[in-house]
């Protein structure tokens, strides 16, 4: 939220998180999808995560709620060591952390009614009697802007925007504290996307939710987030409060990413980042961005830059970052 308390309370503390796919020494090699991420997420905030395909943002999101088992690192949720919980304890913990998926078409079982899909959460956790479950489903549907009678319909009877509302209702069914949304509005048309973003903001206020919001869309991320992390090849390369990141990016990748977005109002000729993102199977030595960076020096090819707090609350992993005083303009 905009007015953060003086002492923000950490909800989720993540240190040294790694997820490597594949067996070391195998012919296919190891893909380091997430390669050492440290971040603390505070209660009531929206942390935006942005990056291009293959940067590891979705794998990271799945790891923090243990939908994917991390290779190493620590995840602490409200003082609880998430990665050490056995199955029954993990089930209990999952009530408090929920996930909204990108594709509302493939994440809803097409053969089940909406009411059943939402009430599954109650059945799994043995909550409420049948009567109470139906009432709760009706109230959840109203909360997300649908009607109670929609409970009897099947997923195909809804539009994309409505299906994403159903995905949100399902995520909220167990009164979670943390909601991780992975590209939750990316498949929607802009007029519908705006409706769903407004709903998410409203729900956050009403239910005191903490969001981790993943998107490749830099406009959406600016709108929804309080703080933003930029990922590149499995690492966090910059982390800052929203307006600081957009107005004075320190990392050359963030700057190039912001410039690349096509827009109606542009004052100056943009610099276009050349080349493709290197394969996470075979990442460059030193700074992972050095192959595309305009400020590259010898040192960047050898040493991985540390992730350091250059300015208050503004973290960056770069040997030669932009000068924060110069106010690097993006457009």
């Amino acid at each position: 939220m905009i007015d953060q308390p003086k002492q923000p309370l950490p909800l989720l503390q993540i240190t040294g998180l790694k997820k490597h796919f594949g067996r070391p020494g195998s012919k296919a090699g190891v893909v380091k999808a997430v390669d050492g991420v440290d971040i603390t997420i505070y209660r009531g905030e929206t942390l935006g995560l942005v990056g291009e395909s293959g940067c590891g943002k979705s794998t990271f999101a799945r790891c923090i709620v243990r939908l994917t088992e991390p290779t190493s690192g620590n995840v602490t949720f409200d003082g609880i060591d998430v990665l050490k919980q056995d199955a029954p304890n993990m089930r209990r913990l999952r009530k408090r952390m929920q996930f909204i998926f990108q594709d509302p078409y493939s994440s809803l079982n097409p053969r089940r009614r909406i009411g059943q899909i939402i009430a599954d959460a109650f059945r799994v956790h043995k909550l409420y009697n049948e009567q109470e479950r139906q009432e709760r489903v009706a109230s959840l549907l109203e909360t997300v802007g649908l009607r109670p009678e929609h409970a009897d319909r099947f997923p195909h009877q809804f539009s994309g925007g409505q299906r994403q509302r159903i995905g949100i209702a399902r995520a909220l069914a167990l009164n979670p504290e943390l909601v991780v949304a992975d590209e939750a509005v990316s498949a929607l048309d802009v007029s519908i996307q705006a409706q769903v973003l407004n709903l998410l903001v409203k729900l956050q206020h009403q239910l005191s939710l903490t969001y981790v919001f993943i998107s490749h869309d830099l406009g959406v991320i600016r709108h929804i987030s309080d703080r933003i992390g930029v990922m590149y090849l499995g690492r966090l390369v910059e982390l800052a409060p929203v307006d600081v990141l957009y107005d004075r990016p320190l990392h050359h990748y963030t700057e190039a990413l912001l410039q690349a977005v096509p827009r109606a109002t542009r004052q100056s000729e943009r610099q276009i980042l050349g080349g493709d993102v290197p394969s996470p199977r075979n990442p460059p030595s030193g700074c992972p961005f050095h192959t595309r960076c305009r400020a590259k020096q010898d040192r960047c090819t050898r040493e991985v830059p540390d992730f350091v707090e250059r300015e208050p609350k503004h973290w960056v992993a770069c040997h030669f970052p932009n000068d924060p005083g110069s106010g690097a303009r993006v457009v």
Partner: peptide
Amino acid sequence: QGLMASVPQIDQPRPESRMLPAIPGA
């Protein structure tokens, strides 16, 4: 007009209300 207004802005801070002027309905 509605389409342009409902696109989240990349070059400006978000509105205080954090609400986008969405086009209602479908």
